[in-house]
Nucleic acid binder design. Sequence first.
DNA 1: GCCCGGAATTAACATATGTGAACGCCCCGA
DNA 2: TCGGGGCGTTCACATATGTTAATTCCGGGC
Lengths: 242, 242
Amino acid sequence: MAAISPQAVFIEKLAAIFPLGAAERTALENVPVKVVELRRGQDVVRQGDRPTRCCILFEGFACWSKVTKEANRQILGIHIPGDLPDLHSLHLSFMDSTLTAMTTCSVGYVKHEVVRDLCDRYPGIARALWRSTLVDGAIFREWVANIGGRQAYQRIGHLLCEIFVRLSAVGRVVDGRCRLPFTQSELAEAAGLSIVHVNRTLQEWRKQGLIELLSGQLTIPDLAAACEAADFDPSYLHFKDG
Amino acid sequence: MAAISPQAVFIEKLAAIFPLGAAERTALENVPVKVVELRRGQDVVRQGDRPTRCCILFEGFACWSKVTKEANRQILGIHIPGDLPDLHSLHLSFMDSTLTAMTTCSVGYVKHEVVRDLCDRYPGIARALWRSTLVDGAIFREWVANIGGRQAYQRIGHLLCEIFVRLSAVGRVVDGRCRLPFTQSELAEAAGLSIVHVNRTLQEWRKQGLIELLSGQLTIPDLAAACEAADFDPSYLHFKDG
DNA sequence: GCCCGGAATTAACATATGTGAACGCCCCGA
DNA sequence: TCGGGGCGTTCACATATGTTAATTCCGGGC
C-alpha cells in the first residue's frame, strides 16, 4: 500500500477545519515534519517546559494532566489521532500542563518558527490553526461543565460518548465499536472520581446495555440512546461548523 | 478628569498581551466600538447564538455558563474588567455556552468583520488576539484541574485566589481587598458545590483568617499564605510570559 | 422608621462517592 | 511451568458533600 506522507495528514486535518487554497496546500506540503514513536507513559511536553516545536498526533492517545498538591493527577483532556494537542505552545511561552502518551504514539514535530512563518504568510492557515485551538477550548469548557455539574453516571458516560464521537469523526469507529485502551484508573483521573467508583459506574452502564468498555474496546450499540442517557450533545465539538 | 476612549482601553489590553507597533496602534484607534450598559442577569450572548460581533468588558463581572439536564447551571469561567470574553466567536460559528452579566456591566462591541480585517492586515494584532484566547484556554484547563482534583476547601480558595490575582493585575486590589459582589449561590455554581457547602467552606476560610468574602468585598490579607493553602500557583495565568 | 425579599447561616439528616483491603484474572517473562 | 505484577472486581466501612427547611441578617424601597 502507498505510504501517506505526514504532511498529507496535516493538510487534511487543517482542510477539515478550514478550507485551504492551492498555495496554502503547497506551502504545507513542504513543511519539515519529524516523526517520532513514543512509548506509553512517555511525556511529549512537561509542565514548565518552553518548547520550540509543536506536534501533530498521528497515531495513539495522549492526555493533558496536572498534579495537585495532594499528589493526585487530574487528566484535563484527551487527544486522539489527527489532533494538534499543543498548538497553544506557539504563543504561550511555557507549558502549564503535561502532555503524556497514553498508548504507543506516533507524533510529528514541527518547529514553531516554521508554523509562525506559515501563519504570517497565509492568513488562512493562521485562521485554521487558531480555530483548532478554539475547539480545544470549547472542549475544556464542556469538561468543566461535565465534572462540575454531573453525577458520576452521566459524567463517565459523557466522557466516553465524547471520545467515541470524536473517534467516529476520524473513521475509527466500526460497527458501534472502537479501540479505547484506557485503564479504569485513567478514567478515574479524567473524571475526578475514584477507581472503585468508576468501576461501579461502568458496570451500571454495562447493565443498561448502553456503553461497554471491556478489554480495550469501547462499544456503544445505540449512540443516540447513550447520548440521551449521558446528557451528551456533540455540538460543542464544532464539527461541521459553518 | 479626562475621558478615556474605549479604544484606548482595548489598545492597552492588547499591548499588555503582545507588543504593538505604531501602525497597529493607529489602526486600533480607529476601530468602531459600540459601548453598551448591561444590567445584572442580562445575557451578552446565548448558547446557540451566531454572533456577528465580539465584545470587550470595560466594567463589571460576567460569566460563561451551561445548563445541564438536571437543570443546574454550571459556571465555566469568570471575566473581569479588561477581558475579551467571546473572542472565540470570531472563528466558531455558534456559541457553545452563555455569557451573562453578573453585575451591571459596561461592554464595548466590535464587529467581527472589523476584527477579521485587522487580523489579516496586522499579524501582530492577530497574534495578540489569538494569545488572549489561549490564556482563556489555560484558565479553563486549570478549572478542570481545580474542580476535578481538589476538595471543597481548596477549590473555593483556588477560585477566589484566581480572581483576586487577576483583579490585582488590573489595579482593582487595594490594601489586600477588592470589590467582588458574588453571591454564595454563584460561587456554588462555579465550584460545582451546593450553596450550603460553600457557606461552610467560606466560614472555614474566614476562621483561618486567610480569605474573607463579606458584603461584596473579598479580603486576602496575606496572599502568599492563601495561595499556599489553596494550592494556587498563578503561573497558568501567563501574565508576564516572555 | 418600617417592611419586604433576597441572601447568609444553621441544623438535622440523606447519600454519593472515597478508602483500604482482599481476591481473582490474565498476560508476560524467566 | 511457575511467579509476579498490573488490572478489574468486590466488600465493608468512612466521609465529604448534598438536601430540605427553618431562622436570621441586611439592604433597599416606601
